[in-house]
Amino acid sequence: MTMIKILTDSTVQLSKEEQEQYQITVVPLSVMLENTIFYDGETINKTEFLQKMSESESLPKTSQPAIGRFVETFNEIGFDGSPIYSDLSS
């Protein structure tokens, strides 16, 4: 039996516990601070982000996840033919 999978980006701000509990796949936004690119929830967490931002001389730059990352993730979670719900229109 297939189940509906949920895919979103990290602007949803779900905790790891919520992601696991509801089986939600999250693709991270990228954040550039002081010429270093971080991936939200993967290579930087909220606490680290706030600390680095307060120490930075310039404002951070963010970007939506690359379309290729979404394609890869769709393929990974949909390999079994399960339907995928994703509202990425915002």
Rank of each mutant, 00 (worst) to 15 (best):
E48R: 14
V26N: 04
S56T: 03
L33I: 15
S86Q: 02
S15G: 05
I44A: 02
V71L: 14
M32P: 00
P65Y: 09
L50D: 04
T2G: 00
K52S: 02
E34W: 00
V71E: 10
I24V: 15
Y85T: 01
T25R: 07
F70I: 04
E55N: 14
F74T: 01
I24A: 03
F49T: 03
S10D: 12
L29C: 11
E34V: 00
S54F: 11
Q13F: 04
Y39I: 06
S30T: 13
T8K: 07
L59F: 12
I4Y: 09
I77V: 14
K16R: 12
P83T: 08
L14E: 03
N35C: 00
Q64K: 11
I37N: 06
P83L: 12
S10W: 13
F38S: 01
S54N: 15
L7Y: 09
M3T: 15
Q21T: 14
Y22Q: 03
D80K: 08
M3L: 12
V71A: 10
G68H: 03
E34H: 01
V27L: 09
A66Q: 11
S82D: 10
I67A: 13
E48A: 14
T11M: 11
N35A: 05
F79P: 00
M1Y: 07
D80N: 13
L14S: 04
G68Y: 01
E55D: 13
T36R: 12
L33M: 10
F74Q: 06
E57W: 04
Q13K: 10
D87M: 05
Q51C: 01
T25D: 06
T36K: 14
P60S: 09
T62V: 10
S30I: 01
L14A: 03
L29K: 07
L59E: 02
E57Q: 15
D9S: 08
T62S: 14
T47M: 10
M3N: 14
G81R: 05
E72F: 00
M3H: 12
D87I: 09
L29R: 11
Q21C: 03
S90M: 10
S15V: 02
R69W: 01
Y22T: 00
L50N: 10
I44V: 11
N45P: 06
Q19G: 00
L88C: 08
E48W: 08
S86G: 13
G78C: 10
S63T: 03
E18R: 12
G68R: 02
L33Q: 07
Y22H: 11
R69L: 13
S58P: 00
V71T: 12
T73Y: 06
G81V: 03
N35S: 11
F79A: 13
T25H: 11
